[in-house]
Design a protein around this nucleic acid. Structure first.
Length: 498
RNA sequence: GGGUCGUUAGCUCAGCUGGUAGAGCACCGCCCUUUUAAGGCGAUGGUCGAGCGUUCGAAUCGCUCACGACCCA
């Protein structure tokens, strides 16, 4: 059925007729109504007052919102209007409005219409704070009916594709996005207080860097050149550290050309921050402080309930190395099983992990880690000492050159953050890029490009620096008990219909 | 990419082993001045996701496709 035919649906047709009647009566979409209060303020201030108190000192309000429910009882009606802060009941009677208005105007309005009303606060028989209306106007006619009031929208697809309907109908969804805003706001304040500066770096990059992931490609017409959407801002932020901005952060979108799932959206929001004269352990401490504070601010507790499990952000976060964690969750293994590539490959094969020829010991260890450890890291945990092979931008450990000064942070079996002491040795970085290019040429389309300009920047000297990325969407999922990343994205990526 | 489930009125859902479609809400008409999933009476509303097939006959059975949800890679 085409969109034009859909418009001929009976209910929409009726509403269009009501709208053309309004057009004939004058301005159908007036903009001159001004409210003097929102529902949340009214409720906060007057919900505790008694019936008698409200009668003794009458309070007048001008309020506006979308009509969500209506109960017409002859010459009197109740309806709820909803605004940005919540809902408030209106009591509308024939005899307090101008002659004929109640029957010829008000009763013809529809649920979903946007109204402006003026009146006096009172309490109903059952004690609900309401407005006794003596002036009411239709501000915006809604041509399409709202979803059914009791069940709301059950169809996930409509919730995602028509988010505005979901936001009108679901307090829970509205709250999720309010929380999301609160999370980002808290992080900004936290970092600002510590002298971090928020910056913006290119989303369109000539060489995509900073992560091992497949990029999206686009084209610049005037310059007639290919460009990539960034997979990470990392290399630009570190150029800023070279430039003397010693504490920088960016909260913005990254783009990765990979599959969609309950944890992956092609564009997602990442916090990245860099602190000069610090090591990865300093960032672990900072992360712990930030997440604990965030949990308390957002949920009022240091215990997070996610999908039926409780995670404790109050206690010190656990810390162990990649190898320690593998041994911990695979008690039948001993250190010798992870010491050599030969031994580790045997372990991997037993776990039916496909091992490619190019994999070194470190890559095999990480495959074993991902298969047997990652989704079992339930309470907040830092994993450290990642192999050099899988950490092309991280500083080598001084005592063990096979691993880096790097950590990842897990909660509920999910990776939330990744940080390390930055590699500021330009020559080592150039070698690592060359290695990535070899892997790319061998067929790994996630491997990194050689970024010569970045090497030049490092050759000018980057102070010792630690940096970290935190996935904002996954963090918000945790704090809003959301099972899918789509529940925390206002407009998640969906396949086009038809 | 593989598996499971789903798609029926604007919305939420029934519809059994095949016999030309049903409820609640919404909408329309009437009654109703403290209701709140308001209530009462009455009426309207459907290319049953799309296509092909089996059959005298398909919402129902089979196949293909589209979109979605969940699980696995």
């Amino acid at each position: 059925m085409s969109e034009i035919e859909r418009d001929e649906q009976e209910q929409i047709k009726q509403r269009r007729q009501k709208l053309s009647a309004l057009r004939e009566q004058g301005v159908a979409f007036p903009t001159d109504f001004r409210r003097n209060v929102i529902t949340g303020e009214v409720i906060a201030e007057y919900a505790d007052k008694t019936k008698e108190e409200l009668e003794a000192e009458p309070v007048r309000v001008k309020i506006a919102g979308r009509m969500m429910t209506r109960r017409i009882m002859g010459k009197a009606s109740f309806c709820h209007i909803q605004d940005m802060a919540g809902k408030l009941q209106l009591y509308v009677t024939r005899d307090t409005l101008p002659e004929g208005f109640y029957n010829e105007q008000f009763k013809k309005w529809d649920i979903g219409d946007i109204l402006g009303a003026e009146g006096t606060l009172f309490k109903t028989k059952v004690g609900e704070l309401s407005v006794k209306v003596d002036d009411i106007r239709l501000l915006t006619k809604a041509l399409r009916p709202l979803p059914e009031k009791f069940h709301g929208i059950a169809d996930q697809e409509i919730k995602y594709r028509q988010r505005y309907l979901d936001l009108i109908m679901s307090d829970k969804s509205r709250k999720t996005f309010v929380t999301r805003s609160g999370v980002v706001n808290f992080i900004r304040r936290f970092l600002d207080q510590r002298q971090f500066m928020e910056v913006e770096t290119p989303m369109m990059q000539v060489i995509p860097g900073g992560a091992t992931a497949r990029p999206f490609t686009t084209h610049h017409n005037a310059l007639d050149m290919g460009l990539y959407l960034r997979v990470a801002p990392e290399l630009y932020l570190k150029r800023l550290v070279v430039g003397g901005f010693e504490r920088v952060y960016e909260i913005n979108r990254n783009f990765r050309n990979e599959g969609l799932s309950t944890r992956h959206n092609p564009e997602f929001t990442m916090l990245e921050f860099y602190q000069a004269y610090a090591e990865y352990t300093d960032l672990m401490d900072l992360t712990e402080e930030m997440l604990r504070g965030l949990a308390e601010e957002v949920t009022g507790s240091t215990t997070i309930n996610y999908q039926g499990e409780a995670y404790d952000f109050g206690k010190p976060f656990q810390r162990m190395t990649v190898v320690e964690s593998i041994l911990h969750f695979n008690p039948e293994l001993s250190a010798a099983d992870l010491d050599s590539r030969e031994a580790a490959v045997k372990v991997a094969e037993k776990l039916s992990i496909p091992v490619k020829d190019g994999y070194g010991l470190g890559k095999v260890q990480i495959e074993i880690f991902e298969k047997t450890v990652e989704n079992r890291l339930m309470n907040p945990t830092f994993i450290t000492a990642y192999p050099v092979e899988v950490s092309p931008l991280a500083r080598r450990n001084d005592d063990d050159p096979h691993v880096t000064d790097r950590f990842e942070f897990f909660v509920g079996g999910r990776e939330i953050a990744n940080g390390f002491t930055e590699l500021n040795d330009a020559e080592d970085q150039a070698d690592r890029f060359r290695k990535q290019v070899e892997e790319k040429e061998a067929g790994d389309d996630e491997a990194m490009h050689y970024d010569a300009d970045y090497i030049v920047a490092l050759e000018h000297g980057m102070p010792p620096t630690a940096g970290e990325g935190i996935g904002i969407d996954r963090l918000v999922m945790l704090f809003t008990d959301a099972p899918s990343i789509r529940d925390v994205l206002l407009f998640p990526h969906m396949r086009p219909k038809n």
